[in-house]
Computed example of a mutant assay.
Amino acid sequence: MNEDSEPRPIPFRAMIPNAITAMALCLGLTGVSFGIGGEWEKALGAIVLAGVLDGMDGRIARLLRAQSKFGAELDSLSDNIAFGTAPALILFLWSLQTAPRFGWIAALSLAVCCALRLARFNARIDAADQPHKSAGFNTGVPAPAGAGLAFVPIYLWLITGNEAFRAWPLVMAWTIFIALLMISSIPTYSWSSIRIRSGWRLFALAGVALLGAALIRAPWHTLLVVALLYLAMIPFSLAGYARVRRRRASGAGRA
């Protein structure tokens, strides 16, 4: 057998981003196990940690120059489980199982819409014409953000102890609403669209540090505020993308 035909060894640095992605997947499933045991704070904490790891793996892969098609596929599968299937099961165990008929259908809607969103993203990843992406916007609500938004009723319940936030009609309507946002064509801000002026750099760093402290001291209050701010930003992202389209149209007209 020719030695040149043997598979080349994979450098350890190339495995680091995939290992982080696998950890995010495991945290998503661990959140389900906590939900089965009724440990709701731990269940949400596992999904939040999975979101943190999901935000790190791609950037670490680019930093180490370890991007691969395998890593992209693994990341998509991890997102589907950690931010689609796991939150759907947690919401079902927490509230939707008490619905007389359609609780499971509502939970499924979150998981299915997350899978459809990721499939749409993968199908367009090499497309030349991506108006939202080229302008620095996402199409619809990303999977990690969708999971965080879907947990808003649980945040409110943990903060107030009010069982009204656990009522299945409210949770069902909210879950379906977030599921539809995930597969919508609404432009939403992405990390690539955020630009920080040099004079505001220290303020931004201080804000990130304070956000981390707030997550440690009052995690559910902080996550609730972040979720509500994200929803409040959607009208601004719509207006911002409309301005980009008008600029492009005027530029094309002059050309």
Rank of each mutant, 00 (worst) to 15 (best):
residue 78 S to Q: 14
residue 146 G to R: 01
residue 28 G to V: 06
residue 246 R to Y: 00
residue 216 I to Y: 10
residue 10 I to K: 05
residue 210 L to H: 03
residue 155 Y to F: 06
residue 189 Y to C: 11
residue 126 D to I: 03
residue 140 G to M: 07
residue 36 I to Y: 11
residue 12 F to S: 12
residue 35 G to S: 12
residue 228 L to R: 09
residue 25 L to G: 03
residue 198 S to N: 11
residue 38 G to N: 10
residue 154 I to G: 08
residue 3 E to N: 08
residue 24 A to Y: 03
residue 212 G to M: 04
residue 109 S to R: 06
residue 136 G to S: 06
residue 206 A to L: 14
residue 97 Q to R: 15
residue 80 N to P: 05
residue 116 L to A: 13
residue 153 P to L: 06
residue 60 I to V: 11
residue 204 A to W: 04
residue 47 I to Q: 04
residue 199 G to R: 13
residue 222 T to C: 05
residue 146 G to P: 02
residue 122 N to T: 00
residue 199 G to K: 10
residue 207 G to V: 02
residue 174 W to T: 07
residue 115 A to I: 07
residue 132 H to M: 07
residue 43 A to I: 10
residue 216 I to D: 00
residue 255 A to N: 12
residue 75 D to R: 02
residue 238 L to K: 08
residue 78 S to L: 12
residue 40 W to T: 03
residue 29 L to E: 00
residue 142 P to D: 04
residue 146 G to A: 08
residue 107 A to V: 13
residue 222 T to Y: 04
residue 169 P to H: 09
residue 71 G to Y: 07
residue 110 L to A: 04
residue 249 A to F: 05
residue 235 P to F: 04
residue 53 L to Y: 05
residue 111 A to T: 08
residue 149 L to I: 07
residue 248 R to A: 11
residue 225 V to S: 14
residue 75 D to H: 00
residue 55 G to F: 02
residue 62 R to V: 11
residue 102 F to A: 13
residue 168 W to K: 02
residue 253 G to N: 14
residue 237 S to K: 07
residue 229 L to A: 06
residue 235 P to D: 09
residue 193 S to P: 09
residue 176 I to Q: 09
residue 118 L to Q: 02
residue 238 L to H: 04
residue 255 A to P: 03
residue 35 G to A: 15
residue 113 C to H: 11
residue 37 G to A: 15
residue 106 A to R: 10
residue 4 D to K: 13
residue 208 V to N: 07
residue 71 G to M: 01
residue 109 S to C: 14
residue 233 M to H: 13
residue 204 A to L: 06
residue 80 N to A: 15
residue 221 H to N: 15
residue 193 S to Q: 12
residue 197 R to W: 08
residue 213 A to S: 04
residue 187 P to E: 00
